[in-house]
């Protein structure tokens, strides 16, 4: 088991390295020269050369890539002499736009994205699984058909439509909720909750619909298994039969899907965060793309890749614990 985990982690590192190289190639080699952008309108060739040198852009590509990677692991220095700036590990460089440390920007914004992701996940898990379960148990009923019809429709509403509609109805028209603002929980819990409620709802809707359909299908499939007939033939109570024999086999595959969905969300909900003006990783990504802020684009890409790949490893490890048939030798 320990060797399996070590192997998976090593694989994770190699994959991340590949993603690094690939994204670096795309964002720094194939994009417009950042020195020209930083330099602005009143630019001289000397000034451009100076900026290029201070950013290390005058060096060969492989050296630049090497510096970036070593910056991630051990930190790096920018400039020289009195202008020397020390960027501690994990160094993701400085924003061309704001000159802020990209690492610091991520540290500041990650809690917002995490709050959005966790809240939405709680909502969609509870609603999706409960609705799916009820549908499966009452298969073919009025409830089942209504819920599944809604789930089919709900899953196909684009997030921005939902976000703008909710915002218009709840904030502008009915004025039930304030305009979202990034207050920390400790300052004003109520406002905090009200601010996050819409993003949670928007993100949770699509997933809840998906999970309801998934849960329903899995539970119906499990209820038809031979071992359910065995459980009934043993004289077990319906509650125990359902809880022990049906739920675990039916819900275990959902853990995998949930892990992947949640990990992807941690990398930022671009549209939702932008619509509601939440300063999370998603909004940071959107802003950096709009302004071609390469170090930030690079960083959010790496971060998202990291979450997805790490989520994959976590889910696989979890699965070996949840399904006895998947044991590693």
């Amino acid at each position: 088991m320990a060797r399996y985990v070590a192997g998976r982690l090593a694989g994770l590192v190699v994959l991340l390295l590949l993603v690094c190289v690939f994204t670096y190639l795309i964002f720094f080699k194939l994009s417009p020269d950042p020195a020209l952008m930083i330099c602005g309108k009143t630019c001289t060739p000397d000034r451009v050369a100076q900026i290029r040198a201070s950013l290390g852009l005058d060096k060969p590509f492989l050296t630049q890539l090497g510096d970036y990677l070593s910056g991630l692991v051990v930190g790096r220095d920018y400039g020289s002499g009195p202008n020397l700036v020390r960027c501690p590990a994990p160094c993701l460089g400085y924003s061309f736009q704001s000159s802020q440390s990209v690492t610091q920007m991520i540290v500041d914004r990650l809690p917002v994205s995490a709050t959005v992701a966790v809240g939405a996940a709680v909502l969609w898990l509870i609603i999706g699984i409960a609705a799916g379960l009820l549908s499966a148990v009452k298969e073919g009923s009025w409830w089942d058909r209504t819920a599944m019809g809604l789930a089919l429709g709900g899953a196909s509403i684009p997030n921005y439509v939902l976000a703008l509609t909710l915002q218009y109805v709840l904030v502008v028209k009915l004025q039930i909720l304030p305009f979202p603002s990034a207050v920390p929980f400790s300052e004003d819990p109520l406002l905090w909750f009200q601010s996050y409620l819409m993003p949670w709802l928007v993100l949770a809707t699509g997933y809840a619909c998906l999970y309801a359909r998934l849960t329903r299908a899995n539970v119906i499939d499990t209820l038809a298994q031979n071992f359910m007939r065995t459980a009934r033939s043993k004289g077990l109570s319906p509650a125990l039969t359902m809880r022990r024999h049906a739920l675990r086999p039916a819900l275990t595959p959902i853990v995998t899907i949930f892990g992947m969905d949640f990990a992807a969300l941690l990398g930022g909900a671009l549209i939702t965060e932008t619509v509601f003006g939440l300063n999370g990783i998603g909004k940071m990504a959107a802003d950096s793309i709009a302004k071609n802020d390469q170090p930030v684009i690079m960083a959010v890409t790496l971060l998202a890749a990291f979450f997805v790949m790490a989520g994959n490893v976590v889910v696989d490890l979890l699965y070996t614990g949840l399904d006895p048939r998947v044991r590693v030798s």
């Binding site: 298994q225 071992f227 086999p249 399904d323 006895p324």
Partner: peptide
């Protein structure tokens, strides 16, 4: 095989 629940001992 299918008559026993694979998730429990």
């Amino acid at each position: 095989l299918s008559s026993l629940n694979p998730y429990y001992t």
